[in-house]
Design a protein around this nucleic acid. Structure first.
Lengths: 351, 351
DNA sequence: TTGTAGGCGTTATCAC
DNA sequence: GTGATAACGCCTACAA
């Protein structure tokens, strides 16, 4: 009879056992506040009667904390979860949260703003990853919220970065040293203000450095090019709008299908995904790597290293970025901005 | 002075504006309950005074719903986020939740049980993905919680599956038809009760079919092998404990390094990751694919298709699985168990 | 159209 | 060591 559709509460249990609610609460949260015997009895009875422990919603209201950390992603969740770099980042975050009994709530800055606001106040802290389309996202966040920015800066909050400019310089320098090249080109990732999936022309405006890390990568490439006798501004650039095979492929096809004497013989790519797409398409066209075409990537994703030829690239430890950001949010690490090192990977695409 | 560290509440705002709390609440939640003019004024004042809208914690306690859907993953978050198949699944889930103004909370069945219980009661519904190590996970969940199981069954709840047995049969049949092979072998994914990263011997016990989908895949392989004149029980099997390059590599190396007359010439792999690892290692050893070694995968991950040779495999739409599960949880789809189709991909590793 | 008041399930501060 | 009791911030009948 009377199957209580309603979830059993702490109060019900207290009444049933003839003890006060405080005692039940203590049995679950502060074992030292009551006799082991009583605690045992309470826990046993709770199990028997189907009480699953304090309700998270009520507890979070009362304590003000939810043990939820939210990662706000610049891109859509769909993209972020499929992209090797950002999922490795998330994986790092999750690893730390896990050991600290926190959970991970995924939010995207792309979601409806009203919705974002609503969900946001649930979390105890925020890790914001990637460049924010609009800064008003922050207006949605609780005031004084714990916040760590990754791959960009937010005034008043610590951030985590990698050394994009030096790393880009290093890999471009490496490529240019390997063998003299005549026609270097740069493949950008989301670098123009205007939507541009193709050649970048003087008509395009580049995003400012505080809006995208790829600007720093470009600076590194340019510095290396200049040092090797090229006029950076004359090195052709193409831009891709999204770091996926599907979006990169047409742009890269256009590059590779240029006449032989115009086709670049060195592609400095801003991501491994772009470089791998170029690699696949170049192989399909019978181009020899690195003889006919030299390629460099950025990120160091596994896919580029578990294939032949191995991609020459820069490894950034996205997992470490995530772990560090998570540790900062949880107060396990002082909240100071940090710059992580990268490592040059000498693969086979650029000998 | 007195910078109110405390977050401003709806009540504060009401007092400030000289209206009742109900009116403020309505302004945010039920626009039709008050004059547009008043609503405008309230919203404007709220913005001006820094009120970010109703607090999610309090709201969820009051309404009983949080707009949070939790995915409980059988594996660790770290693994799940890095694995192509499960992250595509999550991506599908996220896509649907996004459009329905819900958010995604990631939980792992591996986390400390007490923690899991605590966080669980926060969510409005649960999508359980992959095989549960222990069934007592469900005891942690709120009674009568909305729940959808993916890749396994939970009594009393709908599930989403893929046609593992027929798909495995089809691909094995395809491989065996392509060219007569003498020494087929099977590479399993977590199929033994005992931890086993290597050859499966008669001493090992296989997990029961209700504990792992790979059992169904094995059944499909065996049916095809029998049909082509092999005694399934005599076809050698190896097992890998985790679907990652690092864990697969030693096992596969051992297989490939067998003497020529013992080395399998057909590897039926239970995942693309396993097959791709085999492909990489085989290439490193100078084996020709498919002449010397024929390989099949399972999953159809992008990485296997964007390389040469393209992997012969079965595509399962993990994204669709996620979308469907999410739609069921949100009540957009009738809560009936579903079996999704797969598609045979004729790649180059098995001609 | 707006206001009043009770309660959602906890936890924390007190007394006892 | 244990028990009342007052918040936590909001939503929603219901009354005005």
């Amino acid at each position: 009879m009377s199957p209580p559709a309603r979830r059993m509460t702490l109060k019900d249990l207290a009444r049933e056992l003839g003890v006060s609610t405080a005692t039940i609460s203590n049995a679950f949260n502060r074992p030292d506040q009551l006799s082991p015997k009583l605690r045992e009895r309470i826990l046993a009875e709770a199990r028997r009667m189907g009480y699953r422990g304090p309700d998270a919603k009520a507890r979070s209201l009362r304590t003000g904390r939810s043990r939820i950390i939210s990662v706000i992603l610049a891109e859509s969740l769909t993209y972020s979860l499929n992209d090797a770099v950002s999922s490795e980042f998330l994986s790092g975050v999750a690893e730390v949260l896990d050991t600290q009994d926190h959970t991970l709530l995924l939010l995207s800055a792309r979601q409806a703003r009203s919705h974002l606001i609503g969900s946001a106040s649930m979390a105890d802290g925020f890790i914001v990853y990637g460049l924010m389309p609009t800064s008003d996202v922050f207006d949605s966040l609780p005031v004084n919220a714990a916040l760590v920015a990754v791959d960009f800066n937010v005034a008043g909050h610590p951030s985590v970065h990698v050394d994009n400019e030096p790393a880009s310089f290093a890999i471009a320098d490496r490529a240019l040293r390997a063998k003299p090249r005549r026609r270097p080109a740069i493949l950008n990732l989301r670098l123009t203000v205007e939507t541009c999936n193709g050649r970048v022309t003087p008509e395009h405006t580049l995003l400012p450095a505080d809006r995208t890390i790829t600007r720093a990568r470009l600076a590194g490439f340019h510095r290396a090019l200049a040092q090797h006798g090229f006029s950076p501004e004359r090195v052709p650039m193409w831009n891709v709008e999204e770091n996926t095979f599907e979006v990169c492929a047409p742009v890269i096809s256009a590059v590779l299908d240029l006449p032989d004497d115009e086709r670049p013989d060195l592609l400095l790519c801003m991501s491994d995904r772009i470089a791998l797409t170029a690699l696949t398409l170049a192989e399909q066209r019978g181009l020899r790597i690195p003889e006919d075409l030299c390629l460099t990537g950025f990120d160091g994703i596994a896919e580029g290293q578990y294939r032949a030829p191995r991609l020459t690239t820069v490894r950034q430890e996205s997992g470490d970025k995530g772990r560090l950001a998570a540790r900062m949010i949880l107060g396990l690490e002082p909240p100071h901005s940090r710059l992580l090192d990268t490592e040059l990977i000498h693969g086979d695409t650029c000998s």
